[in-house]
Design a protein around this nucleic acid. Structure first.
Lengths: 366, 366
DNA sequence: CAATTAATTGCAAACGGTTTCGCTCTTAAT
DNA sequence: ATTAAGAGCGAAACCGTTTGCAATTAATTG
């Protein structure tokens, strides 16, 4: 009886000290917890420990238990760099986009992030601020980081693609989204159906009785500026409405340029538009603000629609009558899904894909 | 004479073929360009190639030239995983924040990104969407990626910090910014001077003759809600204005709650506030919108100030009279700078630092 | 009891770099 | 002529993990 007790006590004391040592080792974390470290503790080989943690069938169940317990105890975390080196990949997806202050891109990131992390990838976002120089820097940085794939919305300055072509030359798939190389330069792309969005917006205004609908376009460098214009044109045509170049003007994201575009559109008081379709909501807001202050005679009768469906609209006193919702989350989601299939070689890189995401008209007024 | 020409031609032909072979090798990129590959091409040892590329003084200038030229030719890019493994680091900074749709955080990223990339670090951003569960997931993901440092703005649900303490236990420095563990829980932090910001806002309204100034606070879970309240209180006190609990209400980011908070503040028509200081602009916008639709008798005389200085303010018809600019870029910049110093062991991790970034009152009305 | 088979475990190479150390070969100094 | 110094290069270890194969032991079979 007594000896049993003693044995038990001894056991407890040993357990206590073992725990103590373990805790000390946790605290003085100068020796990182590696497989080798675990192996020495357990008096096993590194390979056994590795296999036990990865649940190899050839490893004894009891051994697995011991190893896994110790790993948990010492908070073992496998070194990603080592695994990446071995597996010849980085588990990183690079994203280059113009600006996170633009809610379209911020929302698109949501879709990207979700599916990336679900599949064990990390996402590095890099903003070009619509400058080619920064875009090149970002691209080079991501190339050095050896991303497994790239998702990119090009800057409005980008015309040469050498910095992005590098990736494909190294076998790294690239998916362009939203903003992409114009014309028929072949690449993988995911686009909003900006034609359909603009067509619907114009149709909506026509249905409300408008005859003179102006189109305020964005930077001509951005490819889909023209698609939107085409949507506008086709809607007019399908409704037998005349097209007038006086009703079309272009601007960029600069307020000054928007104002002069609006001045042009409303230059002829006898023939001024009663409705407006705008490339992007911030531009539309600048336009409406200017129109209001410039005391346009029928300002309150002008109905407008922009792309974006910004949450801020509900705070405006004279809000656009509707918005074109571009479903950025869905665009991002489609981009990452396509990229993952390219990475996994489910699709050949040279077999260029094109995915179109429809827009939806959201009506604001009651 | 003739022999010289022949030699020259021969040389050209060789050069041409060499180029051809090199291009072929570039195209069929099945063998990745590694140091070993370069070494074999150049008939040198791997170590010489490595040293030549890293400009070691012990390597002959001519050798360096040859190596660097070949490296450029074959587009050699050192494998980051291999370097990271050797250097025992990842060159990745993790950032956990509630939401990129909040311009404060988006702008703060700008400061972080800039200094991180300048110092050779990549940034992985992870959104918690103000949910503890997601924050824990993000933290674990970043821990697995073995980030070299962490910058975090906690979710409004976070009260337990085990998932973040892990990092420091593994020797990875953590800097809390903006939102941080309340009370005197010791950690590295970079904060906006939210007390001063709120004090100035209140003082500004007092200077404009307001006597009954309401304070619309944010979620009580967010630590600096109280700092702002104190700024408000102190401004009142310093101007010998009475404090009334009827003039204080709290909400979160939910519109419904904001409306009921506003109802409470303006419940007594005889004693309703003439000015309003709000925790954050989106909340203020909700409040103003409700006040306007609820036909408050002196709506147009109510002057208000919120935190944020949102760019959209210029589009509002009845904008706040001023904004508290929180300088998010500067907050982000200070956070990454502190983190880098911790990573470089210029500051001991146990020597907890606190950095305060002042706010600035921006007046909107003419 | 020897021989075969099955169950575990360990060895060692590989991933792609960096870096220490030592070796060879000049060249200058003694 | 001998030695010392120094320039230039290469061998090898190392970072942490995975994995094919060999080695060991135990169990089963003829």
């Amino acid at each position: 009886m007594k000896s049993e007790e003693t044995t038990f006590q001894t056991f407890e004391i040993i357990a206590f000290f073992l725990n103590y040592v373990l805790r000390l080792e946790k605290m003085t974390n100068h020796t990182p917890v590696t497989l080798k470290f675990l192996a020495e503790k357990l008096k096993m080989s590194v390979s056994t420990v590795s296999k036990a943690l990865n649940n190899y069938p050839t490893i004894n169940t009891y051994t697995k238990q011991r190893v896994q317990e110790m790993a948990r105890e010492l908070r073992f975390t496998p070194n990603k760099s080592a695994i990446n080196l071995k597996e010849r990949r980085s588990c990183i997806i690079g994203v280059i986009l113009p600006n996170l202050l633009d809610h379209f891109f911020t929302r698109s990131i949501y879709g990207v992030e979700q599916f990336a992390t679900q599949n064990g990838y990390n996402v590095i976002i890099s903003q070009s601020h619509d400058e080619l120089e920064k875009e090149i820097q970002s691209a080079n940085m991501l190339l050095k980081s050896r991303v497994d794939g790239l998702i990119v919305a090009i800057s409005k300055q980008t015309q040469d693609f050498a910095h992005l072509d590098q990736f494909e030359q190294m076998g790294i798939p690239v998916v362009y989204y939203t903003r992409n190389p114009s014309f028929n330069l072949s690449c993988h792309k995911v686009l909003g159906n900006t034609f359909q969005g603009c067509y619907q917006a114009t149709q909506f205004l026509i249905d409300r009785g408008h005859q003179k609908i102006a189109y305020l376009g964005g930077p001509k460098m951005i490819n889909f500026t023209h698609d939107r214009f085409n949507g506008y044109i086709h809607a007019l045509k399908d409704n037998q409405l005349p097209f007038s170049s006086a009703l079309v003007a272009y601007t960029d994201f600069d307020q000054e340029n928007t104002i002069s575009a609006i001045r042009k559109l409303f230059a002829d008081p006898a023939n001024s538009p009663t409705a407006l379709v705008a490339f992007k909501e911030p531009i539309l807001f600048d336009a409406l603000k200017y129109l209001k202050t410039s005391d346009h005679p029928h300002f309150d009768q002008i109905e407008s629609i922009g792309f974006g469906n910004n949450a801020f609209i509900s705070y405006l006193d004279s809000p656009p009558i509707a918005s074109v919702e571009e479903n950025p989350e869905s665009v991002g989601e489609n981009a990452i899904k396509l990229l993952l299939r390219l990475i996994n070689q489910e699709i050949d890189m040279s077999n260029h894909q094109k995915v179109i995401v429809d827009c939806k008209l959201v009506v604001h007024c009651g």
